Simulated scan of single mutants.
Amino acid sequence: MVGYGGCAVRRAALSPAPSGTGAHAARPDGRRAAGRAAARRAAALIPIRTIRQCVGMIQNTSDCIEVRVTAGSRDEADRICSAVVERRLAAGAQIVAPIESTYWWAGEVQHSQEWLLLMTTTTGRFEDLARCVRELHSYEVPQIIASALVAGTADYLEWIRRETAPGSGG
Rank of each mutant, 00 (worst) to 15 (best):
G22L: 07
A23P: 13
H24G: 09
H24E: 12
P28C: 07
D29Y: 08
R31F: 04
R31C: 07
A34E: 08
G35V: 03
A38L: 09
R41E: 10
R41D: 09
A42D: 11
A42I: 03
A43E: 08
A43K: 14
A44Q: 15
L45H: 08
L45K: 05
T50P: 05
I51R: 10
R52S: 05
V55P: 01
V55H: 14
G56P: 00
T61Y: 05
S62I: 13
D63C: 00
E66L: 11
V67L: 11
V69W: 10
T70M: 06
G72K: 04
E76W: 06
A77T: 00
C81K: 03
S82L: 08
S82A: 15
S82P: 00
V85K: 01
V85N: 01
E86L: 10
A90Y: 02
A91T: 02
A93W: 03
Q94D: 12
Q94Y: 11
I95E: 03
V96R: 06
V96D: 08
P98T: 01
P98L: 02
S101F: 10
T102D: 03
W104R: 15
G107A: 04
G107D: 00
V109H: 00
Q110I: 06
H111T: 09
Q113S: 14
W115E: 10
W115G: 02
W115N: 15
L116K: 04
L118Q: 11
M119P: 00
M119F: 04
T120V: 15
T123A: 09
G124N: 05
A130W: 04
R131K: 12
R131Q: 14
V133G: 12
E135H: 02
E135V: 03
E135I: 06
L136P: 02
L136V: 11
S138Q: 05
Y139N: 01
Y139G: 02
Y139I: 12
E140L: 04
V141D: 05
Q143K: 14
Q143Y: 08
Q143D: 10
I144H: 06
I145A: 13
A146C: 08
V150Q: 12
V150D: 07
A151H: 07
G152E: 02
G152W: 08
G152S: 13
D155W: 03
